[in-house]
């Protein structure tokens, strides 16, 4: 009855990103298990494009993803909060130019 998974037959995990439409940025879809890159792409297609959700895929071995940690939240992202000059709303544009848009 009991099976000991000392024999690990699990395939590595890959993160899947898909592009919903032409020209759109890629979004994270989820993950799949696959033995290698080619099958990771095929598995991504078979799993995450069953309803044409994506027209293109990226797959990345999950252990290659470097994520910021929650402790980074302050140092990483707060500094941008007081740089309003990076946002277009910071600048006023003459009325005539605005109209032309």
């Amino acid at each position: 009855m009991t099976k000991n998974s000392s024999e690990n037959t699990e395939w590595p995990l890959w993160e899947v990103f898909y592009q919903p439409k032409d020209g759109k940025p890629f979004e994270h879809a989820g993950s799949v298990h696959a033995p290698d890159a080619e099958l990771a792409l095929q598995n991504a297609r078979d799993t995450y494009a069953r309803r044409n959700e994506g027209i293109a895929f990226w797959v990345v071995p999950s252990d290659q993803i470097v994520a910021s940690s929650p402790e980074d939240q302050g140092p990483f992202f707060d500094p941008a909060n007081d740089k309003p000059y990076r946002h277009p709303q910071f600048y006023s544009v003459p009325r005539a130019v605005k109209k032309r848009k």
């Binding site: 395939w11 799949v32 298990h33 696959a34 099958l39 095929q42 598995n43 078979d46 799993t47 069953r50």
Partner: peptide
């Protein structure tokens, strides 16, 4: 034989 392949065969 594996979940991903179940999906592929069904497709």
């Amino acid at each position: 034989p594996e979940l991903e392949e179940d999906l592929a065969l069904a497709n």
